[in-house]
């Protein structure tokens, strides 16, 4: 018997965590995490690491950019000295908050990609590599399978990115502290007490969740394409709505489909995002920046729930998801 394998086996017997205690659905979520570990963990960590590295490099050489605001780049020294004489604590706080959100934003920037591609492949790849035959040999229903993919990729996985963004904000502050101390900048305590590097990112995560609910029809549509597409699932996502829009425009001369669905959904979650982040008012000088908060996100959610189009969208999303379940169940 191979000693190495025997050792491994004994290690496996004393496993670190016991999935059986959590039930089927958490196991499916853990599986999704394993499958998409690169997208949801490695990629954002690498970006955060690179950002941190550049920040440290910038501080050491004294000319690196810590952040860029509305296209104008600032070094750490500029940023910090800009508000060094501010007595208005609120202005300082907002500047710091904006800087922090900007820093973490480098991680959140990849969010659309780490959602789109895993979702696009979620029901497609298992057919191509034929592993659906293994999944289907397990006592897990197609509904559970499809929901686990949707919930992890759209809701649970992105939370990891917000956590990493928060961690990066914290790390940047950690790096800034000795620099500020050495340069006699008086804002160390203000920075540490006033920067919402945890609550701000929890707020941003909550904002994202509300946004994702609005975008659910799009995610559902992508799932359906993934379940259906014989090849190139991205094409099956993009082409049908374009064809419908073109046909409508050509034969009816109207843009009802576009306005009712495509633009509307885009606009809705654009508004949701903007109303919480208040990005329009964000200016370099008179910084007026609202840190995203769970409260604001909650308010938007309540407002959404009073909006019929939110429910229409949710119903459309449910129909798409059920379509994907149906496809996975019968189209093999």
């Amino acid at each position: 018997m191979n000693d190495k394998i025997t050792n491994e086996i004994s290690m496996m017997n004393s496993r670190k965590f016991n999935l059986t205690n959590y039930g089927k659905f958490p196991t499916l979520m853990v599986r999704e995490f394993y499958e998409h570990k690169t997208a949801f963990l490695t990629v954002p960590l690498v970006i955060a690491g690179l950002f941190l590295l550049f920040a440290i490099g910038g501080l050491v050489t004294g000319q690196g950019e810590v952040m860029s605001v509305n296209g104008s780049h600032m070094t750490a020294a500029e940023l910090l000295s800009m508000h060094a004489n501010d007595t208005d604590i609120e202005t300082v706080q907002r500047a710091l908050s904006a800087a922090m959100m900007g820093v973490g934003g480098s991680v959140i920037f990849v969010l659309p990609f780490v959602i789109l591609f895993p979702l696009l492949n979620s029901l497609y790849e298992e057919r191509i590599e034929r592993s659906y035959l293994f999944w289907k040999s397990m006592p897990v229903s197609d509904l559970q399978e499809v929901l686990s993919k949707l919930i992890f990729i759209v809701f649970a996985g992105p939370m990891i990115l917000f956590a990493i963004a928060s961690l990066l904000s914290f790390a940047i502050m950690l790096v800034l502290t000795p620099f500020m101390w050495a340069n006699d900048l008086p804002l160390i305590s203000v920075m540490w007490t006033q920067t919402p590097f945890i609550t701000g990112w929890i707020g941003a995560a909550a904002t994202y969740l509300v946004w994702a609910l609005w975008a659910l029809p799009i995610f559902g549509w992508i799932l359906l394409a993934s379940a259906y597409a014989p090849k190139a699932p991205l094409m099956f996502v993009v082409v049908p709505p374009i064809v419908v829009m073109l046909i409508e425009k050509m034969f009816l001369g109207t843009e009802w489909f576009d306005q009712a669905f495509v633009s509307r959904i885009g606009e809705k979650f654009g508004n949701t995002m903007a109303s919480v982040l208040d990005m329009d008012k964000f200016q370099r000088g008179g910084v007026n920046f609202n840190v995203p908060s769970v409260g604001d996100a909650g308010q938007v959610l309540f407002a959404s729930m009073a909006d019929p189009s939110f429910w229409v969208g949710t119903a459309v999303a449910a129909a798409f998801v059920m379509g994907a379940v149906y496809m996975r169940r019968y189209k093999i």
Binding site: M12, R15, L19, T20, Y22, G23, K24, P26, T27, L28, V30, R31, Y34, E35, E126, E129, S131, F134, W135, M138, P139, V140
Partner: peptide, 17 residues
Amino acid sequence: LPRWMKVSQTIDFVEGV
């Protein structure tokens, strides 16, 4: 068997479901 999965993960998975 899913190509991306580790052997140990397949065991964890089946045990979980």
